[in-house]
Amino acid sequence: MAQLCQHKNKLDELNTRVIIISFSTLPAVQDWLDQTCSKFTVLLDPDRKVYKAYHLDRSFLRAYHPKTLWFYTKVILSGGKMLDSHGDDTTQLGGDFIIDEEGNFSFIYPSENSSDRPPVEDLLAFLSELS
């Protein structure tokens, strides 16, 4: 999220609005925004109805995939700080979608595991091609 935040101006140039969706509680989300990025619209989906509608799975095995564990090991070894999960369901996976000006999908990327997200550079390149 911090990376996306750094590219807010570029996203504006690309006529792209970023919408963040979280299933967490409002106080937890506000705390998270204070620590990460508060430049984008953030929507709350506590029942995960929209997560389900966008086919985003819950999976213990995929959430705790070795790649994920290695990702967090590197974060800790490099002096990074782990954020509190606030008691959230850590098996819920995320995803990234690009929707064009007509409301149609241009890009669909459900995360394979907890640390799997498309690189921001790839998203920006894709959005540039759409412009």
Partner: peptide
Amino acid sequence: EVLLKDITKSNQKILLVFIRHLG
């Protein structure tokens, strides 16, 4: 209250990011 349809009317592309837990 935010409707996706209302946002798409603004003639912008949307990057929709579903986050996992906050940790």
